[in-house]
Structures are given as structure tokens and as C-alpha cells.
């Protein structure tokens, strides 16, 4: 616990709030992995953790170390940039892989190779409204 007591109260409260917010958002996102029904719904869940979940924890870390070392510590931005660039790429690839596998198996709930008219909405793939 080096130097934690040196922080002013407002900074401590801000860091505490941001860290808790980030942890709660990440937890909700992972909870979505557990509760949503199909794979395509579950793809949405982790982005909660990787957008504002990671963002607020990294912001908390930036504020904390900037206050602690009394200079601007910004290298957490790098992680944030990495995450914002890489997560969409991985999720997109995963969704495409899942679609490819479902099509190869002839699953009914995924749209076929762009057979629908452009602009029309596909229906509920879980089979019930």
C-alpha cells in the first residue's frame, strides 16, 4: 500500500467509482455469456467489458498513477487503443466462423448466402416471437 494515503479524497473517490463501474460492467458482460440463449446473442455480451468496462478501469489507473507520481501517466491509453482495435476484429472473425459452421451444417436459423432482398430484416432466429 505504498503512498495510497497521500491521495486526496476526491481522487480516491473518483478512482474507486471508476474501478467499481468497470468491474460491474465487465461482470454484467460475462453474465450475458451465461444468460443469453444463442451464440449470436452471446457475441454481443463481451463488448460491454471491452468498451466501457475496460475504459473506466484504465481511466482509473491513469488517474491513480498520475496523482501518485505527480506527473501525467498516460500509457494505459495504449491498452485502450489495442482493445478497441482488436476486439471488433476478433468478434467479427468469430461471428463469421460461427455462421460458416452453421451454414455448413445446414442450420435453419441462420440466413443463407444473402438470399434475402437487400433492406429486409431477417426474422427471429430462435424460432419464437
Amino acid at each position: 500500500m505504498t503512498g495510497m494515503a497521500d491521495l486526496p479524497i476526491w481522487a480516491a473517490l473518483l478512482v474507486a467509482f471508476l474501478v467499481l463501474l468497470g468491474a460491474v460492467l465487465t461482470l454484467i458482460g460475462v453474465l450475458g455469456l451465461l444468460r443469453l440463449r444463442s451464440f449470436y446473442e452471446r457475441v454481443h455480451a463481451p463488448t460491454l467489458g471491452t468498451t466501457f468496462g475496460a475504459g473506466s478501469i484504465l481511466a482509473a489507473s491513469m488517474i491513480f498513477f498520475s496523482m501518485l507520481e505527480t506527473r501525467l501517466v498516460l500509457h494505459e491509453i495504449l491498452i485502450a487503443v489495442f482493445i478497441t482495435i482488436t476486439t471488433p476484429v476478433t468478434l467479427m472473425l468469430l461471428a463469421r466462423a460461427a455462421l460458416y459452421r452453421d451454414r455448413a451444417e445446414g442450420a435453419e436459423f441462420v440466413p443463407l448466402h444473402q438470399e434475402a432482398d437487400p433492406g429486409s430484416a431477417g426474422g427471429d432466429h430462435s424460432g419464437r416471437k
Binding site: 449470436y40 455480451a45 463488448t47 471491452t50 468498451t51 478497441t84 476486439t87 471488433p88
Partner: peptide, 17 residues
Amino acid sequence: LACIITSTPGTAWVEYD
């Protein structure tokens, strides 16, 4: 556009023809 859509939790980019 793909990055924006996928980072938004409610929407996910699946395929581009």
C-alpha cells in the same frame, strides 16, 4: 464501420458481401 458496429454492444457485424 465494422469496428464501430462491433464495438457497440447491441450490434455485431457478421458478414459483408
